[in-house]
Write a protein that binds this DNA or RNA. Structure first.
Lengths: 111, 111
DNA sequence: ATCATTAATCGTATATTTGCGATATAAGAT
DNA sequence: ATCTTATATCGCAAATATACGATTAATGAT
């Protein structure tokens, strides 16, 4: 009956989950890798590398953009996407710090 | 027509995506946090903390377990779950190393 | 042996994601 | 002005995820 209960959690939990969600598909991991290897990347090159249709790649790019992990400028038929390192580092450190802190407290495993 | 193309990507990409997917819901982030704060954690305590039905929490626990992020021993009516730090660190470092390496190559942003 | 407790599983409804082809859009080339 | 190229968006179908209540299973208590 009641769906989509995500807003009942803390903002930080939602943010982290959103970040993870953006990277929860191998195509998007692959896209990030391709983008990270170049300074300027045209979408078409990504399409060539991935085993997916152009429209699907465009959709994945959109999701990564919405999540803030990449930024892109649309310049007519030629789009330039690249990784938004700032946002990426923010999440990455938030993520690792959360679990590193917890880990210190809890050296011995229980089961 | 063709769906579920995930197997067309590298194993590493799939693994990373699977790890991210396991954490792509705030409820599962919250569960990991609760588990990390105790040495032994009974599922019921998690149910009390989360704004979700018992069956739903059980489902989330199952997903975390399938992803290898937590391990649990079922002991009759009393289950003990805890974080699988080993698997967690493996992914965590794989994850950060991937992007740290890439970042070094690519100090200047392009757009 | 029966009851209470706790957690997993089943069945089901709805929402979201994934993917593609077709179409639209926007700029450069002819 | 028309054609080409590159990318975004639309519309749709299928798969997966999310959530719950009801049921089952398994142990401990009475």
């Amino acid at each position: 009956m009641a769906f989509h209960k995500k807003e009942e959690f803390t903002q930080k939990e939602q943010d982290l989950a959103g970040f993870a969600k953006a990277m929860s598909h191998p195509a998007r991991i692959a896209i990030l890798k391709v983008l990270a290897q170049r300074n300027e990347c045209i979408c078409g090159e990504i399409v060539d590398v991935l085993p997916l249709a152009q429209s699907t790649v465009s959709q994945h790019l959109k999701e990564l953009k919405n999540a803030g992990l990449i930024s892109g400028t649309i310049d007519g038929p030629r789009s330039c996407y690249c990784i938004n390192w700032k946002a990426f580092e923010k999440f990455s450190s938030e993520f690792t710090s959360l679990f590193n802190n917890l880990k210190v407290k809890n050296e011995k495993a229980c089961c």
